[in-house]
Structure formats: structure tokens, C-alpha cells
Design a protein around this nucleic acid. Sequence first.
RNA 1: GGCGCGUUCGUCUAGAGGCCUAGGACGCCGCCCUUUCAAGGCGGAGAUCGCGGGUUCGAAUCCCGCACGCGCUACCA
Length: 494
Amino acid sequence: MTEQPVRTRYAPSPTGDPHVGNIRTALFAWALARRTGGQFLLRIEDTDRTRYVPSSLEAIYESLRWLGLDWDEGPIVGGPYAPYIQSERLPYYHEVANRLLAEGKAYRCFCTVERLDALRAEQQRRKQPPGYDGLCRSIPPAEAEARAGEPHVIRFKMPREGQTVLRDAIRGEVVFENALQDDFVLLKSDGYPTYHLAAIADDIAMRITHVIRGEEWLSSAPKHIRLYEALGAPEPVWAHLPVILGTDRKKLSKRSGDTSVLEYREKGYLPEAMVNFLALLGWSLDDKTTIVDRETFVRNFSLERVGANPAVFDIERLDYLNGYYIRAMSPDRWAATVVEWCEAHLPSSVPRPLDRSVLEAAAPLLQERVTRLADIDDLVLFLFTERAPEYEPELLVERLAGDRDFALRVVDAALLALDALPPQEWTRERVEGAVRSLESALGTKLRKFVAVLYVAVMGRPQGIPLFDSMALLGRERTLLRLREARAKLERMHG
RNA sequence: GGCGCGUUCGUCUAGAGGCCUAGGACGCCGCCCUUUCAAGGCGGAGAUCGCGGGUUCGAAUCCCGCACGCGCUACCA
């Protein structure tokens, strides 16, 4: 509905790698900005020096880049409201706090941490709503100014009566009793602002029109609404996104599964799959659509179609989408993806650079059986080793009801038929012909005995098609592996 | 404890009073295809719409209560 260009922002705090729930918020904020032809900003909220993790800055940029969420203003790219890192904007927050102080909308509080702790403990013991009791609110301004050199914080004067109404784009009206709110801290004693001050002061300064954030902020919305009012700024459109839960229905965290966005990249998930997955976690296009590419998402996104109920992060849906996008790739792009992935992920014992022609030939075979890029590893490793990857002899007869003698006959027959193929005739077609000839030689259907050959060649009973595998492997390595399999079978009996 | 949000197949969801004997997708089961594994095709099971009251000719859809889940309750974000 919103056709006016909108300004949204993603404002993470650098306390670690961005989590999927967090990045979903970024995705929605980004989509709304793009959809309306507005701007999407990135702002770093590093006002808690004790939780600061330097490496997370790069992780934030990398996560956004990976998913294609480009920011119009923010770190690196700059913008008219720079700087976009809060620790570089301290003077501005002091200015805002002082203005509130001067207008009597805030006050200095000299209460010690000890008193606050004791107060909270007492309130809990008496089962009273916790919160600052407003002791320092009554200190005469003149006295407070005289004591300005002492350690203190600056608190906001919340109204003590009446209600504050939040009009949320996703949840409708939410009413809060002012009597239940307390005078929250604006400026900490270390001179840094709290989230409340910094976020709102910046949202105002940066002309943010739509504040899209997680549900965990819903409870503090009245504080923010009152701050907007005190600063004489028009309220933005608020939208509190539901939380994302783990399979255990608890808020997604390290305990209930992987949460770091970058970890999904390392496991071989495609950004387009992740975007599609995240887009449908809380938002829907209609009653049928489940494949939503980035463009479709942007073109159709609206806050009106975002649900208010928490969603479970179901990895199986992500897997499905990832497989879908892998199969949807053009053969060329897929081949390039395979080469790049293998160069970076095959064991270091495999010499580089890898043989591109082998990987390019295997690519189409991989495309229809890979869910995550990491699945490629086990599927192609056998092509880059002299012998078959290590395997137990029992594996050779596993699908033959343990019939060792039969397995031996299969291998012998295969050896005979394949050895008869001269090197220049070692093609997929001829290999297939040779192997299929075993049907009559052994008097059994191919499917009844191929498993032995799969294991002999690739060390596992399943993988990419056998004839292609043998063709790619070449005559010598194939025969070598069959002979080794034979030796294993002979030794087995015991 | 208080305040707030939420509650449709196992999961993501469609549904904004009659189109719902509740639709789609993932997953699951079966069949087909097939050199393994997949992929693909076809079909199936699966939600008395958290529970209880209302309002209405009629409620998944509106109202109230309850239950449960989650969030917040810091000089953290």
C-alpha cells in the first residue's frame, strides 16, 4: 500500500555473527525500501563497549553482501547523515540528552548500581513490578547541576499516568499503561547512550520513516514513542516482526540449531535459497506460491502481508529450496559453482588446480543429486584419488545378501569384459555396453549386482552413475580398483 | 510475579462471516521411472481451525473468559 519512498534501516549491534532471525529483519527492511524506491541504511549500534566483538563488523557486511542486501547509506558507502557507527556519534547523543535535560524532560540520577540492585531485589521479593523508583527525579535542578561532576546517568521522565498507544503495522493497536513504565536510562555513566536514546535519536536524525525490528522491542515501544514526542519528531511507522523459533519451539539460538548466517554459506546453501526461505518465514505472497526469487519478493513485499505469529526455522524446507535453486541453475553457472566449491573444499591432499574437465563433466550428474554444495565433496572425491576411498570389504556384499562368491563372480566378469576394451575405446557408451554384457554372462539383472561395482569404484554403494564414473576415472584406475576389490573379497572369507 | 504478543495439518502458510465437507508447499507413505543414490511424475494419509462461552440464519474468521507458548521486565541490544 505504501507507495511513498520509504527509509528503513538495519541496525545490528556488533556482538557476534548476524543470526538468521536478525538478518530476516534486514531482508524485510531492505525489501520495503527497494519496493518503494526508498533507501535502506545500515547503522552499527556499538554502544555497549563490554559486548563489542570487532570481527562481527565484517561478519555483518559479509552477511548482507552474501544475500544481496545492498545498503544505500552506512559504513563503507557513507551518506548524508554520516557517521553511521554510533560510537562515532557520541557528541550528538550528549547534545540530545542535554536538550532533554534543559527542557526538564530528563534528569540526572546519582543512584549507585548497588542501590539499584537492592531495589530490584526488594521489588522481586515483594512481587512488585521492577523498575526505577524515581528517587532522583525529585532532586532540585540546581542541586543536580551542582553535582554534575559526580558519576551519574541521565534518565528520561516517563509520564506517570495515562496510556501510550502503539500503532503497529503488523499487530494493530497495542495499549500500554504509563504507570507501569519506569524512568529509563538515556545516557550511561560511561558517557555512552543506551539503545533507547541512540536508536531513536538516530532514527530521527536519519529520517527513518519505517522502524522494522524484532518483537523483542515491542515492550519498550512506549519508551520510544514518548521519546519521539519529547524530541518533537513525528513518529515513524512501527513494525515488530515475530521471532523465529528453533525446532524445539524456543527462540532460535545456538542451542536449538545453527543460527549464524555465514555458517549456512559455509555449508553450501545458496543465497537465493536463503532469501526465499527467509522471505516466507513470516511473509506470504498468496495461497500457492512457494518459490519466490529476490525480484518477485521485492516487487510484492508489503508489511500488510507479514504475519504476527512466530515461525519455526525448518531446515528441511531450506534444504528443499536449496536443491530447487541448484537444479534451476544454468548448466554453465552450475559447473562454475562446482569448480569453485571443489577448489576450496576438497581435502588439501588432492593436488590443485583440479582437473576442470573432470568436474565439468561431472557437474550435470551432481546437479540433480545435491542438496547442499557440501554434498559435492563425497560425490567427487573418488575421481581425484588413485585408489578408491577407504571402505570395509563387507560393503562389497552388503546389497548382495552377503553372497561373497557371487560378488567375486561379478568382479571377475567385469574385469574380463572391461579389460577387453582397448584404451581408445574407453568411452561411457562402451563401458556401459561392457558392464551390461554381464547380465547375460551372469544371468542376472544389472540392478542385482551393480552395487558391488559402485563400491569397488567409489568406495560407496551410491553416488553418481557408474558408467560415467568409470569413463571419467579412466581405464587404468578402474581396472586397478576392480582388482583391489577382488583382493578384498578373497581375503574376506575368514 | 507484572506487562505485552501469539495460537489453522509434524513444519511454513492461505484464509479478513457463507466460495472451507479448510487450499498450497516441505516432510512422510505408496506407485511409476531407473545402473546405485537422487531428481522427476502420479497418488495418499495428515488440521473437528488451542479450550469454553457468546454475537449471528450462519464463525477458522467478530466479542469475552481460560489454557498454553513466547517476549520484555539492565547504566544489553
